[in-house]
Protein backbone atom coordinates (compact mmCIF):
# COMPACT_ATOMS: atom_id res chain seq x y z
CA UNK A 1 0.00 0.00 0.00
CA UNK A 2 0.91 3.65 -0.15
CA UNK A 3 2.19 5.55 2.79
CA UNK A 4 -0.71 7.74 3.80
CA UNK A 5 1.18 9.54 6.51
CA UNK A 6 1.54 12.79 4.61
CA UNK A 7 -1.45 13.21 2.28
CA UNK A 8 -0.52 16.73 1.15
CA UNK A 9 2.44 15.38 -0.75
CA UNK A 10 0.51 12.66 -2.58
CA UNK A 11 -0.45 12.55 -6.22
CA UNK A 12 -4.12 12.72 -7.13
CA UNK A 13 -4.80 9.01 -7.42
CA UNK A 14 -2.78 8.03 -4.36
CA UNK A 15 -4.41 10.82 -2.42
CA UNK A 16 -7.83 9.50 -3.34
CA UNK A 17 -6.91 5.96 -2.35
CA UNK A 18 -5.62 7.15 1.00
CA UNK A 19 -8.67 9.35 1.47
CA UNK A 20 -11.12 6.58 0.69
CA UNK A 21 -9.43 4.19 3.10
CA UNK A 22 -9.23 6.55 6.07
CA UNK A 23 -10.65 5.29 9.35
CA UNK A 24 -13.72 7.41 8.93
CA UNK A 25 -14.43 5.92 5.53
CA UNK A 26 -14.14 2.43 6.93
CA UNK A 27 -16.84 3.39 9.42
CA UNK A 28 -18.90 4.68 6.49
CA UNK A 29 -18.56 1.36 4.65
CA UNK A 30 -19.48 -0.55 7.80
CA UNK A 31 -22.62 1.53 8.19
CA UNK A 32 -23.94 0.01 4.94
CA UNK A 33 -23.73 -3.31 6.72
CA UNK A 34 -25.58 -1.79 9.68
CA UNK A 35 -28.43 -0.69 7.42
CA UNK A 36 -28.66 -4.10 5.73
CA UNK A 37 -28.55 -5.83 9.10
CA UNK A 38 -31.30 -3.59 10.39
CA UNK A 39 -33.44 -4.41 7.36
CA UNK A 40 -32.75 -8.12 7.74
CA UNK A 41 -33.77 -8.13 11.41
CA UNK A 42 -36.60 -5.61 11.23
CA UNK A 43 -38.47 -7.35 8.42
CA UNK A 44 -39.24 -10.61 10.26
CA UNK A 45 -39.84 -8.82 13.58
CA UNK A 46 -42.31 -6.41 11.94
CA UNK A 47 -43.98 -9.33 10.28
CA UNK A 48 -44.38 -11.01 13.67
CA UNK A 49 -45.80 -7.79 15.15
CA UNK A 50 -48.09 -7.50 12.17
CA UNK A 51 -49.26 -11.06 12.56
CA UNK A 52 -50.03 -10.51 16.24
CA UNK A 53 -51.76 -7.22 15.46
CA UNK A 54 -53.87 -8.74 12.70
CA UNK A 55 -54.79 -11.75 14.83
CA UNK A 56 -55.74 -9.40 17.67
CA UNK A 57 -57.88 -7.33 15.33
CA UNK A 58 -59.73 -10.52 14.31
CA UNK A 59 -60.08 -11.75 17.87
CA UNK A 60 -63.44 -12.52 19.43
CA UNK A 61 -62.26 -11.04 22.71
CA UNK A 62 -63.40 -7.44 22.57
CA UNK A 63 -60.55 -5.62 24.40
CA UNK A 64 -58.00 -7.53 22.36
CA UNK A 65 -59.80 -6.60 19.17
CA UNK A 66 -59.84 -2.96 20.18
CA UNK A 67 -56.17 -3.12 20.96
CA UNK A 68 -55.37 -4.62 17.57
CA UNK A 69 -57.48 -2.11 15.69
CA UNK A 70 -56.31 0.83 17.76
CA UNK A 71 -52.67 -0.11 17.26
CA UNK A 72 -52.94 -0.23 13.48
CA UNK A 73 -55.14 2.86 13.22
CA UNK A 74 -53.07 5.12 15.44
CA UNK A 75 -49.63 4.14 14.25
CA UNK A 76 -50.66 4.34 10.60
CA UNK A 77 -52.17 7.78 11.11
CA UNK A 78 -48.93 9.34 12.30
CA UNK A 79 -45.85 10.10 10.19
CA UNK A 80 -43.07 7.69 11.12
CA UNK A 81 -40.73 10.61 11.71
CA UNK A 82 -42.92 11.87 14.57
CA UNK A 83 -42.56 8.50 16.29
CA UNK A 84 -38.85 8.37 15.77
CA UNK A 85 -38.39 11.74 17.45
CA UNK A 86 -39.38 10.53 20.90
CA UNK A 87 -39.95 6.81 20.82
CA UNK A 88 -36.43 5.62 21.49
CA UNK A 89 -36.06 7.62 24.69
CA UNK A 90 -39.53 6.52 25.78
CA UNK A 91 -38.74 2.85 25.16
CA UNK A 92 -35.41 3.12 26.91
CA UNK A 93 -37.00 4.69 29.98
CA UNK A 94 -39.76 2.11 29.96
CA UNK A 95 -37.32 -0.81 30.01
CA UNK A 96 -35.14 0.77 32.65
CA UNK A 97 -38.21 1.45 34.76
CA UNK A 98 -39.25 -2.21 34.58
CA UNK A 99 -35.76 -3.41 35.47
CA UNK A 100 -35.61 -0.91 38.27
CA UNK A 101 -38.84 -2.27 39.77
CA UNK A 102 -37.42 -5.79 39.67
CA UNK A 103 -33.83 -5.16 40.68
CA UNK A 104 -34.16 -2.41 43.24
CA UNK A 105 -37.44 -2.90 45.09
CA UNK A 106 -36.09 -1.05 48.14
CA UNK A 107 -35.20 2.15 46.27
CA UNK A 108 -37.00 5.01 47.99
CA UNK A 109 -35.97 8.02 45.91
CA UNK A 110 -38.38 9.21 43.23
CA UNK A 111 -37.60 8.07 39.70
CA UNK A 112 -38.38 11.46 38.27
CA UNK A 113 -36.51 14.24 39.99
CA UNK A 114 -37.38 17.39 38.14
CA UNK A 115 -36.58 16.51 34.56
CA UNK A 116 -34.10 13.81 35.54
CA UNK A 117 -34.96 10.19 35.03
CA UNK A 118 -33.12 8.21 37.66
CA UNK A 119 -33.04 4.48 38.20
CA UNK A 120 -30.60 2.53 40.33
CA UNK A 121 -27.24 1.74 38.77
CA UNK A 122 -28.05 -1.98 38.41
CA UNK A 123 -31.13 -1.19 36.35
CA UNK A 124 -29.32 0.88 33.73
CA UNK A 125 -29.43 -0.49 30.24
CA UNK A 126 -26.73 -1.28 29.47
CA UNK A 127 -24.81 -0.85 32.72
CA UNK A 128 -22.74 2.29 32.63
CA UNK A 129 -19.62 0.15 32.96
CA UNK A 130 -20.47 -1.85 29.88
CA UNK A 131 -18.12 -1.45 26.92
CA UNK A 132 -19.14 0.86 24.13
CA UNK A 133 -20.13 -1.96 21.76
CA UNK A 134 -22.84 -3.04 24.18
CA UNK A 135 -24.22 0.48 24.26
CA UNK A 136 -24.23 0.52 20.49
CA UNK A 137 -25.89 -2.88 20.27
CA UNK A 138 -28.53 -1.76 22.71
CA UNK A 139 -29.15 1.44 20.75
CA UNK A 140 -29.40 -0.63 17.58
CA UNK A 141 -31.92 -2.98 19.20
CA UNK A 142 -34.04 -0.05 20.29
CA UNK A 143 -33.98 1.23 16.72
CA UNK A 144 -35.05 -2.19 15.44
CA UNK A 145 -37.87 -2.31 17.97
CA UNK A 146 -39.07 1.19 17.05
CA UNK A 147 -39.03 0.34 13.36
CA UNK A 148 -40.82 -2.92 14.08
CA UNK A 149 -43.57 -1.22 16.07
CA UNK A 150 -44.19 1.29 13.29
CA UNK A 151 -43.95 -1.13 10.39
CA UNK A 152 -45.70 -3.86 12.34
CA UNK A 153 -48.81 -1.68 12.25
CA UNK A 154 -48.65 -1.52 8.46
CA UNK A 155 -47.96 -5.23 8.23
CA UNK A 156 -50.93 -5.89 10.51
CA UNK A 157 -53.08 -3.90 8.15
CA UNK A 158 -51.87 -5.89 5.14
CA UNK A 159 -52.22 -9.26 6.85
CA UNK A 160 -55.66 -8.40 8.21
CA UNK A 161 -56.81 -7.74 4.66
CA UNK A 162 -55.10 -10.88 3.37
CA UNK A 163 -56.77 -13.06 5.99
CA UNK A 164 -60.13 -11.78 4.83
CA UNK A 165 -59.29 -12.41 1.19
CA UNK A 166 -58.98 -16.16 1.56
CA UNK A 167 -62.10 -17.37 -0.29
CA UNK A 168 -64.95 -17.71 2.11
CA UNK A 169 -66.17 -20.96 0.58
CA UNK A 170 -63.00 -22.64 1.77
CA UNK A 171 -63.65 -21.61 5.35
CA UNK A 172 -67.19 -22.93 5.13
CA UNK A 173 -65.92 -26.19 3.70
CA UNK A 174 -63.48 -26.50 6.58
CA UNK A 175 -66.29 -25.91 9.01
CA UNK A 176 -68.40 -28.55 7.30
CA UNK A 177 -65.55 -31.01 7.79
CA UNK A 178 -65.67 -30.25 11.50
CA UNK A 179 -62.59 -27.99 11.75
CA UNK A 180 -62.57 -25.84 14.85
CA UNK A 181 -62.07 -22.09 14.52
CA UNK A 182 -58.47 -22.45 15.54
CA UNK A 183 -57.83 -25.29 13.11
CA UNK A 184 -59.41 -23.36 10.28
CA UNK A 185 -57.19 -20.40 11.06
CA UNK A 186 -53.93 -22.32 11.21
CA UNK A 187 -54.55 -24.87 8.46
CA UNK A 188 -56.60 -22.93 5.93
CA UNK A 189 -56.21 -19.20 6.44
CA UNK A 190 -52.55 -18.87 7.38
CA UNK A 191 -51.08 -21.07 4.63
CA UNK A 192 -53.12 -19.32 1.96
CA UNK A 193 -53.07 -15.70 3.04
CA UNK A 194 -49.50 -15.04 1.88
CA UNK A 195 -50.32 -14.77 -1.79
CA UNK A 196 -52.89 -12.09 -0.99
CA UNK A 197 -50.53 -10.36 1.38
CA UNK A 198 -47.57 -10.38 -0.96
CA UNK A 199 -48.23 -7.19 -2.96
CA UNK A 200 -48.80 -5.25 0.25
CA UNK A 201 -45.81 -6.79 1.99
CA UNK A 202 -43.49 -6.15 -0.92
CA UNK A 203 -44.54 -2.52 -0.91
CA UNK A 204 -43.99 -2.38 2.80
CA UNK A 205 -40.49 -3.71 2.29
CA UNK A 206 -39.86 -0.92 -0.21
CA UNK A 207 -41.06 1.68 2.28
CA UNK A 208 -38.94 0.11 4.97
CA UNK A 209 -35.87 0.43 2.75
CA UNK A 210 -36.64 4.05 2.16
CA UNK A 211 -37.25 4.80 5.83
CA UNK A 212 -33.70 3.83 6.77
CA UNK A 213 -32.31 7.35 6.16
CA UNK A 214 -34.25 8.28 9.30
CA UNK A 215 -32.10 5.90 11.34
CA UNK A 216 -29.85 8.71 12.46
CA UNK A 217 -32.82 10.12 14.37
CA UNK A 218 -32.77 6.95 16.43
CA UNK A 219 -29.18 7.46 17.42
CA UNK A 220 -27.74 4.90 15.02
CA UNK A 221 -24.83 6.19 12.97
CA UNK A 222 -26.09 5.11 9.59
CA UNK A 223 -25.06 5.76 6.00
CA UNK A 224 -26.73 9.18 5.87
CA UNK A 225 -24.98 10.28 9.04
CA UNK A 226 -21.58 9.34 7.65
CA UNK A 227 -22.33 10.69 4.18
CA UNK A 228 -23.11 14.08 5.70
CA UNK A 229 -20.17 13.96 8.01
CA UNK A 230 -17.71 12.95 5.31
CA UNK A 231 -19.18 15.16 2.63
CA UNK A 232 -19.18 18.34 4.69
CA UNK A 233 -16.41 20.78 3.82
CA UNK A 234 -13.19 20.07 5.71
CA UNK A 235 -10.66 22.68 6.69
CA UNK A 236 -6.98 21.82 6.71
CA UNK A 237 -6.82 22.53 10.43
CA UNK A 238 -9.14 19.69 11.28
CA UNK A 239 -8.36 17.05 8.69
CA UNK A 240 -5.43 15.71 6.70
CA UNK A 241 -7.70 15.65 3.67
CA UNK A 242 -9.15 19.14 3.34
CA UNK A 243 -11.86 19.49 0.70
CA UNK A 244 -14.90 21.55 -0.15
CA UNK A 245 -18.52 20.53 0.10
CA UNK A 246 -18.57 17.03 -1.37
CA UNK A 247 -21.97 15.98 -0.11
CA UNK A 248 -23.23 15.73 -3.67
CA UNK A 249 -20.88 12.81 -4.42
CA UNK A 250 -21.66 11.03 -1.20
CA UNK A 251 -25.38 11.38 -1.69
CA UNK A 252 -25.01 10.16 -5.26
CA UNK A 253 -23.42 7.02 -3.82
CA UNK A 254 -26.37 6.63 -1.46
CA UNK A 255 -28.77 7.11 -4.35
CA UNK A 256 -27.06 4.33 -6.30
CA UNK A 257 -27.19 2.08 -3.23
CA UNK A 258 -30.91 2.60 -2.73
CA UNK A 259 -31.76 2.15 -6.40
CA UNK A 260 -29.76 -1.05 -6.50
CA UNK A 261 -31.45 -2.37 -3.38
CA UNK A 262 -34.86 -1.54 -4.85
CA UNK A 263 -34.06 -3.26 -8.13
CA UNK A 264 -32.84 -6.42 -6.43
CA UNK A 265 -35.91 -6.46 -4.20
CA UNK A 266 -38.20 -6.13 -7.21
CA UNK A 267 -36.60 -9.10 -8.90
CA UNK A 268 -36.76 -11.25 -5.77
CA UNK A 269 -40.39 -10.40 -5.13
CA UNK A 270 -41.32 -11.19 -8.72
CA UNK A 271 -39.83 -14.66 -8.19
CA UNK A 272 -41.60 -15.23 -4.89
CA UNK A 273 -44.91 -14.18 -6.42
CA UNK A 274 -44.48 -16.72 -9.19
CA UNK A 275 -43.78 -19.48 -6.70
CA UNK A 276 -46.56 -18.58 -4.30
CA UNK A 277 -49.14 -18.32 -7.08
CA UNK A 278 -48.66 -22.00 -7.76
CA UNK A 279 -51.91 -23.82 -7.11
CA UNK A 280 -53.73 -20.77 -5.77
CA UNK A 281 -57.28 -19.77 -6.56
CA UNK A 282 -56.15 -16.52 -8.15
CA UNK A 283 -55.92 -15.33 -11.73
CA UNK A 284 -52.16 -15.83 -11.77
CA UNK A 285 -52.47 -19.28 -10.28
CA UNK A 286 -55.07 -20.19 -12.87
CA UNK A 287 -52.81 -18.96 -15.65
CA UNK A 288 -49.94 -21.15 -14.40
CA UNK A 289 -52.25 -24.14 -14.24
CA UNK A 290 -53.40 -23.64 -17.81
CA UNK A 291 -49.88 -23.09 -19.09
CA UNK A 292 -48.77 -26.34 -17.47
CA UNK A 293 -51.70 -28.36 -18.75
Amino acid sequence: MFACADPQSLEKFDWLVCYLTSGKHVLFYQSFGVVLLLLAITAPVSLAFGFLGASAARSQITPLRWFGKGYTAIVRGVPDIAFFMFFVIALDQFFEYLRHKVKCPDWDLPIRQGSDFIVCAQAKLPLSTAPQWQHETYGFSLAVLTFAIVFGAFAANVLFGAMRSVPHAQLETAEAYGFSRRQTFWRIVVPQMWIYALPGLSNLWMILIKATPLLFLLGVEDIVYWARELGAAKQARFSDYPHGDWRLYYFAALLAFYLLLTRISEIVFARITRRLSHGQATAAGEKQRKAAA
Binding site: G23, K24, S239
Partner: peptide, 21 residues
Protein backbone atom coordinates in the same frame (compact mmCIF):
# COMPACT_ATOMS: atom_id res chain seq x y z
CA UNK B 1 -16.78 5.21 34.37
CA UNK B 2 -18.14 8.47 33.12
CA UNK B 3 -19.69 8.66 29.69
CA UNK B 4 -19.02 11.96 27.97
CA UNK B 5 -21.63 13.03 25.44
CA UNK B 6 -20.62 15.35 22.63
CA UNK B 7 -21.85 16.30 19.20
CA UNK B 8 -18.78 15.75 17.06
CA UNK B 9 -19.70 18.43 14.55
CA UNK B 10 -18.66 21.77 16.04
CA UNK B 11 -15.01 22.45 15.31
CA UNK B 12 -12.81 23.57 16.90
CA UNK B 13 -14.70 22.61 20.07
CA UNK B 14 -15.42 19.05 19.00
CA UNK B 15 -15.39 17.21 15.70
CA UNK B 16 -14.58 13.81 14.28
CA UNK B 17 -11.06 13.39 12.95
CA UNK B 18 -10.07 11.33 9.90
CA UNK B 19 -10.31 8.17 11.94
CA UNK B 20 -13.80 8.96 13.15
CA UNK B 21 -12.55 9.68 16.67
Amino acid sequence: TVRLGTEGAYPPYNYLDDNGE
